[in-house]
Amino acid sequence: MSRLSEGNIRLANEIIGRYPRPRSAMIPLLHLAQQQDGYLTNDAMVHIGELVGSTSAEVYGTASFYEMFKFEPVGKYLVNICGTLSCALMGSEELMHHAEHKLGVKMGGTTDDGLFTLEHAECQAACTEAPCLQVNYRYRFRVTAADFDSLIDDLSAGRLVDEIPAHGTVARVAQHIPRDRGVGAVPPESVTEAPVWLDGKAAL
């Protein structure tokens, strides 16, 4: 149960500063908390509420709407197998059965060693490469049973740590707007004038 670390508070404030209203930073901050702890702790959600000026109930209300946020620990590797039409047409159901057998858990379950959580996912936008899956949101395309086995073996042996970070980290690169280059966000009510470049003249 942890609040955001000092480093993450700095990042959180940087993110909040980009929006005209702090509450817009809610989802990015929830990702930040999940990156820190692997899932969303109550303390982190209370802390996010303090940072963006919302109640913790509002933070939970938003967070609980979205599939990616987890409220209890999941495996280090979240394996999402797509089951929507294009993948279903190309054998995703068999792949899911195979995955359950290989990992010894049902869909939604986590292996005893805490390494893998298996989930039935909806369309992952890789429909021509069916059946597809994501491990912590990194793709594997046209996955056969043998591919699945070697993927699990590689992950278990720690061979893919450079490519696939532990659950919670989605993007490993963040946006940073240099202080001297950014325009800065202002609350909408403090702007009434048209942007200066709408002066009927060419800008260049």
Partner: peptide, 25 residues
């Protein structure tokens, strides 16, 4: 200098903020 203040040295200034979702069709 392609985004932010005074793009290409003009009076056109705009920020682009990367925002990301969390799974909801």
């Amino acid at each position: 200098g392609y985004i932010g203040k005074n793009i290409l040295g003009t009076h056109f200034s705009v920020d682009i903020v990367l925002h990301w979702g969390a799974g909801a069709y």
